[in-house]
Design a protein around this nucleic acid. Structure first.
Lengths: 228, 228
DNA sequence: TAGATTGTTAATCGATTAACAATC
DNA sequence: TAGATTGTTAATCGATTAACAATC
């Protein structure tokens, strides 16, 4: 209440970080990983900003929210900053993930290498359909939905992906939560209702297309942000 | 330069609309469609706000960016507001869409009803693999990639979805653009480089998971935004 | 009419940018 | 040392909220 206005260093990392900042953190991480792979030892706020279309000041400010990671006169050491950002995002340890619904989308997700690269490993897959049960897909065996609770608990799974039809999604979410899952990525076009201590994120592809349509219709040549 | 500060009504609809506002427009549209289906004739900024976790003031302000759609004392007529928002988003007419890459993800996208519900119709599908060419999936015939340009032009396609491996994505994008496509939804984990008059949007599922992990790790019970 | 709800203005709040002393 | 670049403060900018006259 009577804090002047700035946030002091001590409370900084404890403060609720602005959502937009955390989103950019993911982008910084990707660029750093790319730079590191290409053999760069260090980078700078200017370089990161240029690569991502942001100002250097913003890059520094964003990172400063979480600590002091850079070296004046030198910049940021990729080797050091990458794990720091992973610490912040919570991806510095592997997350075991459950996938429910092995339709075309589920299969695609099982084969998606991007998850594993960033520390998410699908270790359990479930489907209702007996003809799918027992199949091995990308080294994961499809199990009957009845085993959901047992497997989630056995493997200590805390994050899950829902790729079932709309009508099943809420029921699956409830079961996952009851079994101990605290984060759900939902592809079904429904808004899940979840307990307040469980986090959910919905991927709505129709909305992505809609936003793209707007951008297409309103492109007056100028705002050339290439975010693809 | 010497405009006091507010935006006056005349320039309002011509101004570049803030990205955040347009995103919420999609959310309003969904709720309105739902309300309409449930038989509601009218709704209010208060109701829409409550359904979406926004303030009534924000709902009104967002809509006021694009015109006067409401009736004092009554609210908004669903029947009227839905097409108005579609006009703004550019989805009041059907978009023919091309899909390139018929792997598991491509198949899932072909079967995704959410696109068609919102005015996007996949009318052409392409794949490199001769064994896939000729297959009918969801009433769309898979064509060889060589026919991409000809079909895009024949069908007047202006939006496309890329669901090919990372290594192919840029080349496909270039061909799509050359054929006249002006909006690309990209699922390959690469940043496409596109001409400034072409719009792109990337869906990066690893980033979604990362953001979710952060939300899980930092959930201190409180911020219970259920965005699923 | 009284109650409800809009569109809009002014006030508040938060996020981005610019600038610079401190540091390597 | 001189040049580069950080973290941070102050200034700017934009977005959200509160309030209310106008309207049905």
């Amino acid at each position: 209440m009577n804090e002047p206005h700035g946030k002091n260093p001590e409370t900084a990392s404890g403060d609720a970080a602005p959502k937009a900042v955390v989103e950019r953190l993911s982008l910084y991480l990707r660029e750093l990983q790319k730079l590191n792979k290409d053999g760069a030892d260090t980078t700078s706020s200017t370089q990161l900003g240029r690569l991502l279309g942001l100002s250097d000041a913003q890059v520094r400010k964003d990172l400063a929210n979480f600590g002091q990671f850079g070296y004046p006169g030198i910049g940021y050491r990729c080797d050091e900053l990458i794990p720091k950002i992973k610490d912040i995002l919570g991806t510095n340890h592997r997350w075991n993930v459950a996938l429910v619904g092995i339709g075309n989308l589920g299969r695609a997700l099982l084969g998606y290498s991007g998850f594993e690269n960033q520390g998410f490993k699908i270790v359990a897959a479930f489907d209702q359909d007996p003809s799918k049960v027992g199949q091995m897909i990308e080294e994961v065996e499809v199990r009957p939905i009845e085993q959901l609770e047992a497997e989630v608990q056995r493997l200590g799974i805390r994050m899950a992906i829902i790729a079932v039809p709309r009508t099943e999604a809420q029921a699956i979410a409830d079961r996952l939560v009851a079994a101990g899952v605290v984060g759900i990525l939902n592809f079904a076009p429904v808004r899940l209702s979840l307990p307040t201590d469980v986090r959910g994120a919905g991927v709505d592809l129709a909305i992505e297309m809609e936003q793209l349509a707007f951008a297409v219709v309103n492109r007056s040549g100028c705002q050339n942000r290439e975010n693809a």
